[in-house]
Design a protein around this nucleic acid. Sequence first.
DNA 1: AGCTCCCGCCAGGTC
DNA 2: GACCTGGCGGGAGCT
Length: 605
Amino acid sequence: MSSTLPEGQKLIRKPLRSPFKETSANDKGHVFVEPQTPLKNASKASEAAFLESHKNMGPLTTPTKGLEAPSSEPWTPTSNLKMLISAASPEIRNREKERSVDSSESENSQEPEQGEEVEKLQISRKDKSLGLLCYKFLARYPNYPNPAVNNDISLDDVAAELKVERRRIYDIMNVLESLNMVSRLAKNRYTWHGRVKLAQTLAMLKRAGRENRYGQLMQQIRQRSLEREEREFDLDGEEKENEDMSSFEMDGDSGQAELSGADPKAASANSRKDKSLRVMSQKFVMLFLVSSPPVVSLEIAAKILIGEDQVVDQDKNKFKTKIRRLYDIANVLSSLELIKKVHVTEDRGRKPAFKWTGPEDLPSPKNLGTSTLSSASQPLESRSSVDNCAKNLFSSPGTKRGFTRHNSLVKLVKSIQDDRRKINSAPSSPVKMTGDSTNGGFYTNKMAHLAAICKKQLDEQLTVHRNQPTNKVTDALNGSTSQVSELPESTSASNHQSHGPSGMQIPVLPAGAIPYLSTKCSPIIPVLIPQHQAGGSYAVYMHPTSLRPQPTSLAVRSMTFESPGSANTKTSPAATTSSNQTNHHHTVKSRQVPQPLNEHVEKRA
DNA sequence: AGCTCCCGCCAGGTC
DNA sequence: GACCTGGCGGGAGCT
């Protein structure tokens, strides 16, 4: 492949701070910058330099590194800063560009020049991160492209200009395509749409997420995770190791058994399509759009994705692979500033998670078919395009497509349709969709399996919590498992979870506290408690049992949005407020992404 | 030690 | 058959 990196490039790796900085954020998305260390300052400064430099330059060219820093120079924050600033400097870049022209002319010699050698030495793992690469990619194109100009993207050109393998560009393009920010024109060619269609696409995804009850699924998983830990705490058992990762799969046994009768080849083919980065990306985004607050841990996301692929995903390696892919997706979404890295810390360790930072006011689903973008700045000419996109994203089976995927994710839809057909035809398929394949029935088959799984578990849980009031989720899931085909297309999850557990005692919230998670369908009742000191807010997961006179030992836990420089906020005041009940704390620590490129990008638009 | 995710192999798809 | 596409997991860097 022509874009293969020179051999030497992978030989030397030097540590470099992540292009993403960690900060803390509260539930409102307020970001608290951590106390600056020199290293972090360097990182921030270099980012600023990188971004600032783009305000005055044309399409980004690959920053070439390191003439200023001799290879023998120790790798310090200063040299790190120097390198990144030089990488971001147009002047230096131009000089490098000239150099690269020169060197390409003498390429036949196969002798790497000295400067090239230095450059290789300076390239670090983080320099080549997908997130940074995506930033560079995005900087090349306006958020709202002028339809009059050529918005074609040549993969070869991009890969060459960014000096990366084409394989990496595919990763970016797949995620962007899942959001309709690009569409495939032909082999090796894409069309750039930017954010023109983004709001509509997100609205569609949100609706799909609701209809597929992703919110409920996440709550089920969270709840079960809670209860499992509770059990483990009581048992102090060794079974934790085995149970820990695979619980979701174990819980899905029934679904597995039912699906295992399917043709393995078909399952394999489905599996490959199903694991497409595009599909994963859309599902991942859906989780944020239906979650409140929009914080999704990778673990939960992976479990949900695995749950839908249970035929083949049954071991830890698959889980790890899923996590890897989610990191890939998350890095691109971070670059798009749709999500932001955070960490959820529990007693058992810190878990990576992401918080939605993208648009929250999405076009109303009922208006998706019409041109009703809320943004007044939305170019008129783009609206028809958006409409097109919105329709095509989850297009109907009659959609005929040629080679190109222009304006749509028809391939995705086709794969889903294939998938649905095969699952439906499986002898043991427990649920059969009778509806059409318009938006409403998007993933419903698979979700029905999951719903059945969750229902089973919920039933068990309800047996455990026999004294608890009836959970409406059970009702909803009953409907989803036995009568999925009868659910109206327009039924949203919220309709099914709009009733709180009857008779459940609602905790008295501290002043200013807001529900962290929906209390409508889960026995866990998390609330956000404003943190009085420097930190963010707390979410206290309150299990109904804890509201009783004899709270269980682990029934209540808190989520802490970590305050600046207070990595150990487990004993923060607000937490102490509920310390009588709080045994677990979740600390969210965000990784801040660089400032928006939108501004300068749009200037060039 | 666990997290993060780059890297490139290679299977499947397309031309 | 050549090339394109992208799933996948090893393993290195990072925390």
